[in-house]
């Protein structure tokens, strides 16, 4: 009942916001800054450095959009949101877009009146166990104590998985990831479960990472992507195609190092030309100028560069591309054509 009322209120707000704030692009341009909702801190995805400058994979998407729209990758006001405040922040217009490792689900898309404009990271829920436990599959975890963050989809996925496999578990509820790490290291639970990217980041901080393994089973689909409000499709298009430009750039081999050369004059590849604005008028269709995608790519590099810099194998988190490889390399990252 309470939830219904709350969602109802959200809906009304979403409608109201959608009706009256139809031109987010104009608002952003008038303000000169993009308000981008991020997490209050998640390793590799969004975190402030010692000088207060935000960095990370999700932050990269915000900067690309700001560069495309405003011409300045630093014209972003990062609004830290928690899991509880993120949707209201977006619905009420406090932020223009949310790039906050948010799972794309039907109810969020439909009932909360948001538009997920794509997926920038395919995640899934995994299990972290100490190697000495000798467990090689999540199905061997019968009777295990499991550290689990309360109030998240991971909690529901966990219950589904254990019920489907007809095995039992004992949950140890925790509030934050930091608490999870401490509880797990202190032996309060046999296994710690959360998104696989989070597990990798957690494991990387351990004294001896090789003493812990992430089990092969991924028990849920967590497509994480940026989202915008319903009702302003022009703005949604801009954010969507900015992300697509980053993805296509990797596919076509446009990087932050060779982009100057490629955009200087029309080249042999017509799609590269269209993306970089040396041919056609795609930017104009979006209500932006011809160089929009060039600036977005230059902000932090293409999708692959962003990945490698923030969460890739050369970083302490050391995530392999896996599902997040380009479709040509057997992954799911795929951008519709720029035509």
């Amino acid at each position: 009942m309470k939830k219904t009322v709350f969602l109802g209120a959200l809906t009304v707000a979403g409608l109201a916001a959608g009706a009256s704030a139809a031109a987010t692009l104009d608002d952003v341009k008038a303000r000169g800054k993009l308000n981008c909702g991020v997490t209050t801190g998640l390793v590799g995805f969004a975190a402030p450095d010692a000088n207060g400058k935000w960095e990370g994979f999700d932050v990269g998407v915000c900067r690309a959009v700001a560069a495309a729209v405003l011409g300045d990758a630093n014209a972003v006001e990062f609004v830290p949101t928690t899991g509880k405040t993120r949707f209201t922040a977006l619905a009420s217009g406090e932020v223009d877009m949310l790039a906050r490792n948010t799972t794309w689900t039907l109810s969020r898309d439909v009932d909360l009146k948001f538009d997920f404009i794509g997926v920038n990271y395919y995640d899934g829920q995994g299990f972290l166990v100490p190697k000495e436990m000798g467990v090689s599959s999540a199905k061997d975890l019968d009777g295990a104590t499991v550290c689990i963050q309360t109030g998240t989809t991971t909690e529901l996925n966990l219950a589904d998985f254990f019920r489907a496999n007809n095995i039992s578990y004992e949950p140890v509820p925790i509030e934050t990831n930091a608490e999870g790490q401490q509880q797990y290291l202190a032996g309060a639970c046999d296994t710690y479960t959360t998104d696989a990217s989070g597990l990798a980041a957690t494991r990387a901080t351990f004294e001896d990472p090789s003493a812990h393994v992430v089990l092969p089973e991924i028990i849920s689909k967590e497509p994480l992507g940026p989202l915008v409000r319903h009702g302003d499709n022009e703005w949604g298009d801009i954010v969507r195609w900015t992300l697509n430009a980053l993805i296509s750039a990797e596919e076509l081999g446009i990087t932050s190092t060779n982009i100057g050369e490629l955009s200087a004059a029309p080249g042999d590849n017509p799609e590269i030309n269209r993306i970089l604005g040396t041919e056609g008028n795609l930017g104009e269709m979006l209500g932006l100028d011809a160089d929009w995608a060039k600036r977005a790519i230059m902000a932090g590099g293409n999708y692959g560069e962003l990945f490698a810099k923030n969460i890739g194998e050369s970083t302490p988190i050391a995530l392999s591309r896996g599902l997040n490889a380009q479709w040509k390399d057997g992954g799911l990252i795929y951008s519709p054509p720029f035509r």
Binding site: G41, V43, A47, P80, T82, T85, T176, T202, F206
Partner: peptide
């Protein structure tokens, strides 16, 4: 106020731990 996303000392401690260099410090 850290629960509503304002970065007071406790909120910042979480943000600082999200830096790869300091993840794991409590």
């Amino acid at each position: 106020v850290s629960i509503i996303g304002l970065l007071d000392p406790l909120g910042l401690s979480n943000a600082i731990r999200a830096d790869q260099a300091w993840n794991g410090i409590v």
